[in-house]
């Protein structure tokens, strides 16, 4: 994400102008996955949206530290821009909402988004932890440089991912999107500190290992 998404000028412009950026390391966190370390200038390998959901999470907070949106795993620039737009719109709604109704706005907005992405009511209302958790498909494929172009249907928040013929990875990507939105619906405006103590409602309790096919120069 650092090499590809955070380096994209439109992403940089949007994040600098409309957001305040904050980063923490999950090193030592039992819920964190594992990965081959990369230096800032290591080449980026192909990656699916949502890959490495235990390694990276992008969360959106109010200035009071309440989480109102989350996207776990890798986000390509266009996916990140879509998430930024959604977060901006939802934040504006929250600003205009009385305090006692804000949690409801978060839940309703995420529900509406899932419906727009053609998730069924059964999928949205299913109970249980990490119901939508996509298969942890980490791509370690030599000669797989066509993945990103192939995965156009899986990007942009999964809008094109409803056609499994066009995109056989769509179920995994959509599963991750469902997990992220449901986390926000189930725990609207969860405090960042509480999340930090237990991120498993979002990232699950499994252990993932992330490696891109570009390898890594740092080791872990």
């Amino acid at each position: 994400m650092r090499t590809v998404s955070f380096s994209q000028p439109q992403v940089q412009q949007t994040m600098s102008r409309d957001f305040v950026c904050f980063t923490t390391s999950t090193e030592g966190d039992p819920s964190a996955g594992e990965s081959i370390r990369h230096r800032p200038k290591d080449p980026a390998g192909p990656c699916l949206r949502g890959n490495g959901q235990q390694n990276v999470q992008t969360l959106f907070l109010t200035p009071a530290g309440e989480i109102f949106h989350a996207a776990s795993g890798y986000l390509a620039p266009e996916d990140l821009l879509a998430e930024l737009r959604f977060a901006q719109e939802l934040f504006a709604k929250l600003q205009a909402t009385p305090p006692n109704q804000r949690a409801g706005v978060v839940t309703a907005s995420h529900r509406e988004r899932l419906e727009q992405l053609q998730f069924t009511a059964d999928q949205i209302d299913a109970k249980g932890p990490n119901l939508g958790m996509g298969m942890n498909l980490q791509l370690v494929l030599p000669n797989s440089n066509n993945i990103n172009s192939f995965l156009q249907g899986a990007t942009q928040a999964g809008q094109g991912a409803t056609n499994p013929m066009a995109d056989p990875f769509a179920p995994f990507v959509r599963g991750q999107i469902l997990t992220d939105q449901k986390f926000c619906m189930d725990q609207p405006l969860l405090s960042a500190s509480k999340f930090e103590r237990d991120p498993t409602p979002l990232v699950g309790t499994g252990k993932s290992f992330f490696m891109s096919n570009s390898g890594g120069s740092g080791g872990r």
């Binding site: 950026c21 904050f22 959106f60």
Partner: peptide, 12 residues
Amino acid sequence: DRPIVWFRVLGD
């Protein structure tokens, strides 16, 4: 006010 984007990452 602006929202905060919080990037949690394994590593630096």
